[in-house]
């Protein structure tokens, strides 16, 4: 059965508190933190980008479970902040984990769901026998224009999932997607920051697509929300996933372990994947996990995942790499000036 063979996460150590961003733009910090349900967000170091985050996440996955790099036949990195416009981040990841040259690779972009699209691609390749293992990464140093609503949540981080047929720690029972052409959020070629449709990103974007994919999954699997132990939804803020969970009939307890956005922010392509990783950090054999990502533009990928005995076996060592909780602990706080420097938002004389 195809499933998750191993997984790893990386989150930079720096954080900025939302009230500090609000202070700079004269916004009401209480309204923002209450409205978004986000209190702080991760900030990359000066020498961190999507490629370094993707490599660290992939290396963590490899540390947790022995996998012959030669058997990794595919690597897909989903991001909307690839360091190069042309030159794949996936090749850098492949080289850094010793999987090159006998592999295929490509970079994906589908706003916040490019990483889960990579999982689906790896599932297809593994299930058809084309590759023994594939790695799907979702990582971003998320972009938000100074003063824009996105700046309060756009964070840095990512997760890597090794997908294969051989004794997975979690079987992926099924996946399905819901996709339309919806201009709720975009970034044109050559632009530094994305633009969005404000409130339009809600109902016609996030809620329509997440519900579309989630209801399709429940129907195709013949399940109800109470059949699952945990649920993870894309988390651009804390409000949206909580509201969509309620609309679909999932409880606050089911989404709690995977709701990392209040202390992490929105890691765009990493968002739902880090949420899934945080859930796998606490899951036990038999746990059933419902996942629905969302990418603006727009689409959602849903997954029905069932944790196996392998997660508790000697073959898999969860403690060999840091958990999401450990990565969120012990942050270094920066003020807005340092944050702006770290994000390259200060224009330098050349």
């Amino acid at each position: 059965m195809v499933g998750i063979y191993s997984y790893g996460v990386y989150i930079p150590r720096f954080r900025i508190k939302i009230p500090e961003i609000a202070r700079v733009w004269g916004a009401n910090a209480d309204d923002l933190t209450k409205g978004l349900g986000v209190f702080e967000k991760s900030v990359p170091d000066l020498d961190e980008d999507t490629a370094t985050i993707a490599v660290e996440a992939a290396r963590s996955a490899m540390r947790r479970r022995s996998v012959d790099p030669e058997k990794i036949g595919a690597i897909y990195v989903g991001s909307e902040s690839h360091p190069y416009a042309v030159k794949p981040t996936a090749c850098t990841v492949g080289e850094a984990i010793g999987a090159t040259p006998h592999m295929t690779a490509a970079d994906y972009e589908f706003a916040c769901k490019a990483g889960t699209a990579g999982i689906q691609t790896c599932m297809g390749l593994a299930k058809s026998g084309m590759v023994p293992y594939g790695i799907a990464v979702g990582a971003d140093v998320a972009q938000g224009a100074p003063g824009d609503a996105l700046e309060y949540t756009a964070a840095a981080g990512g997760a890597a999932f090794v997908i294969g047929n051989d004794d997975p720690i979690a079987v992926i029972n099924h996946t399905c997607s819901f996709t339309t052409d919806t201009p709720d959020f975009w970034r044109r070629e050559g632009q530094n920051f994305p633009r969005h449709g404000g409130r339009f990103t809600g109902d016609p974007g996030y809620f329509k697509h997440v519900q579309g994919a989630a209801r399709m999954m429940l129907e195709q699997m013949g399940k109800t929300p109470s059949d699952y132990d945990y649920a993870v939804f894309h988390q651009p803020n804390a409000k949206f996933p909580q509201r969509v969970a309620k609309m679909l009939g999932f409880s606050a307890d089911q989404i709690r372990p995977g709701l990392v956005v209040p202390r992490l922010g929105n890691t765009y392509s990493g968002s739902s994947m880090v949420g899934l990783a945080a859930t796998l950090d606490v899951a036990e054999p038999g746990s059933r996990i419902f996942v629905t990502s969302f990418g603006s533009g727009a689409g959602s990928d849903a997954f029905d995942i069932e944790v196996t005995d392998a997660i508790a076996s000697g073959a898999f060592d969860r403690s060999a790499a840091p958990t999401v909780e450990q990565l969120l602990a012990n942050p270094i706080y920066v003020d807005y000036a340092l944050y702006a420097k770290h994000k390259g938002k200060i224009v330098m004389q050349r």
Partner: peptide, 20 residues
């Protein structure tokens, strides 16, 4: 060791990744 960006060849050149 960790994987980091070491330097870059200007705004349009190659990015040099490596070990720190």
């Amino acid at each position: 060791s960790v994987f980091r960006r070491i330097a870059a060849d200007g705004e349009s050149g190659v990015i040099h990744y490596g070990t720190k």
